[in-house]
Design a protein around this nucleic acid. Structure first.
Lengths: 259, 259
DNA sequence: CGCAAGGTTGAGATATTTCAATAGGAGTGG
DNA sequence: CCACTCCTATTGAAATATCTCAACCTTGCG
C-alpha cells in the first residue's frame, strides 16, 4: 500500500453500479492471469474451474476516491472483487450517521450481503482511487451448478465473512479501546503482509472517524489510543502513516495480557 | 415458546456431534411434512426441490438443556436446523470468558460458520431441551449441483446470517444500553410472532449474563435496564418472563427517538 | 433445611464520551 | 505566491454511561 495522490472528490454521488461506468469501455479480466488469484475468488480452485471463470470475462471498473461502488438498497446483481485500492462498507443509521462494517482491500470480495434480499444491505465507498472486477452473480451461480468446487469456494467465502463478523462482535462486545485498536492494527498488518506489503509500516486509508465507527468508539478515543500506543513505544503515528515498532506488544494488548 | 420444565444440567459435556447420540436410534425427518418448512431451509423452494431434500432423510436428534450440539473446533460435517427449543452460539475468549454471538430458535440454522475452515468456529449450547435436524453438508452440496434453486437458497441463508451480524455490529458499535436491550426484545418478539407465538409475552430462555454478552454489556446493566423499562411502563419483567406493554415505545427507544 | 445459582439493587470507580480549543495541511482563489 | 478556508487530527477538561464490587433476595433442589 503506497501513498496515492489524494483526489479532491469528497461527495458520494448517487450512481447505480455499471450503469454509468467511469471508464468509457469496460476492460475484461481473466482470473487465470490475475496476480490476485491466490487471494481472491479463484483461490483453491483447479485449473479447469479457473478457466470456467475466465469464460465470464468479468468487467473491470475504476471507482474514484469518495465514490460509491454501490449503495445500500441498490439492486444486487454483482459481487465485486477489489483489484486495487481500499473500500469501506457502511450501513446508514436511522439518525443519519453511518456505521462502518468493514474495510476491503485487494483480493477481497464485496457485496455478498446483497444476496439475502436481492438488494445491497450496505454501501461500498472507495477510500482512494480503486479498481474492481464486477462478477455477475447470476452467471456465477450458473457455473456453480457445473462445478461443485466453485460452489464450495463461494460458500466458503461467505462463511469466512460470517466468521470475520463473529470476531468483530467479540471485539465490540468484550474489549476495551486499546484492545480494539490493537486488534485492528494487527488485522491490517496481517492482510497487507499477505499481499506482499510491509507488515509494520503502512498508510491507513481511512479517517479516524471511520476507524472509530468500525471499532465502536469515538474518533477522539481512537486518536488518544494511538497517542497512548506511541507513548508506550509500540508504534509511531503521524496522521495516517503508521509504523509498528512492537508487534508482540500489540498482540499482548490484544490478548488482554496488559491492563 | 411456552414454559418448559427446567432441566438440572448446567455443565457442558465434551461430546462430538452425532458420535454419541442422546437417542439410541436416529429418527429421520422429511422436509415436505415439517411444520417449519416455510421458515427453515426449504423456504422458497419448489415441490421437486423439497422432495430432493426429503431424499436426504435428515437425522433428528435431541440435545438437552446445557449440552452442546457442537463445540468450537469440532470438525464441520453438518448444518443443523433447530426443530424446537433454543440455542446460544458462543465463542471462547482468550481469558476464559465466552462471547455469545447469537440465539437460535425453531426454524433457524446453526453451524454455517464451520464451512470456512472445516471446523466449527463457535459452539452451540442448548438453553432448554431441544430437537434438531442434522443436515449432512456434503450431501446438501451435492444436491445443490443438481438444483440451482437449492444453491441459491443456501447462499441466501448464509447471506442472511451476514446481514444479521451487520445489524448486531450496528447495535454494538453505536447504541446505548437501552437501545440495545430494546433491539433485542423487539427482535425476539418478532421472531416468536413469525412462529405463531405471542409477540408481547414470552419467556426468555437465556440468563442475564448471556443477554449481556450478546449485547456487549454487563449482566447488572441488563438487569437495571429491564427495571428502567418497567418503570417507564414499557413492559413487565419477572425474571425470565417478559410482557411487553408498549411495543411502539420500545421501537422509539430503539430508533433513538428517546434520550 | 440449607445451599447454590440467578437476579436485583446500591454506591463508588473508571473508561469513554462530549464539548471545546488548537494546529497543520491541502486546495482555492485573488 | 500568499491568504483564506475547510478538513482532519490532536489534546484538555468536565460530564456521563457503564462497570465493578458488594450486599441481599428469591427460588429450586439435593
Amino acid at each position: 500500500m503506497q501513498t496515492a495522490p489524494a483526489a479532491p472528490v469528497r461527495f458520494v454521488p448517487r450512481e447505480t453500479a455499471l450503469r454509468t461506468p467511469s471508464a468509457p469501455a469496460a476492460v475484461s479480466t481473466l482470473c487465470s492471469t490475475c496476480h490476485l488469484k491466490d487471494l481472491c475468488l479463484p483461490c483453491g480452485l483447479t485449473g479447469s474451474d479457473v478457466q470456467r471463470l475466465d469464460g465470464l470475462k468479468f468487467a473491470r471498473r475504476r471507482v474514484k476516491e469518495g465514490e460509491a461502488l454501490y449503495h445500500e438498497g441498490d439492486r444486487f446483481q454483482f459481487v465485486y472483487a477489489v483489484r486495487s485500492g481500499t473500500f469501506k462498507s457502511t450501513l446508514n443509521l436511522k439518525d443519519g450517521r453511518e456505521q462502518v462494517t468493514g474495510f476491503q482491500i485487494a483480493g477481497e470480495l464485496l457485496g455478498l450481503d446483497g444476496l439475502a434480499s436481492g438488494k445491497h444491505a450496505s454501501s461500498a465507498i472507495a477510500l482512494e482511487d480503486t479498481e474492481i472486477c464486477a462478477i455477475p452473480y447470476a452467471h456465477l451461480t450458473e457455473l456453480a451448478t457445473v462445478s461443485p468446487d466453485l460452489h464450495i469456494a463461494m460458500s466458503r467465502m461467505m462463511s469466512r465473512e460470517i466468521v470475520r463478523e463473529h470476531g468483530l462482535m467479540m471485539l465490540l462486545g468484550s474489549m476495551n479501546a486499546e484492545q480494539r485498536l490493537a486488534a485492528f492494527l494487527l488485522n491490517v498488518s496481517q492482510r497487507l503482509k499477505a499481499r506482499g506489503y510491509s507488515a509494520t509500516e503502512f498508510h491507513l486509508r481511512m479517517m479516524r472517524v471511520d476507524i472509530g465507527s468500525y471499532l465502536g468508539m469515538k474518533l477522539e478515543t481512537v486518536s488518544r489510543t494511538f497517542t497512548a500506543f506511541q507513548q508506550q513505544g509500540l508504534l509511531k503515528v503521524d496522521k495516517k502513516h503508521v509504523k509498528i515498532l512492537d508487534l508482540e506488544g500489540l498482540q499482548a494488548i490484544f490478548d488482554g495480557q496488559v491492563h
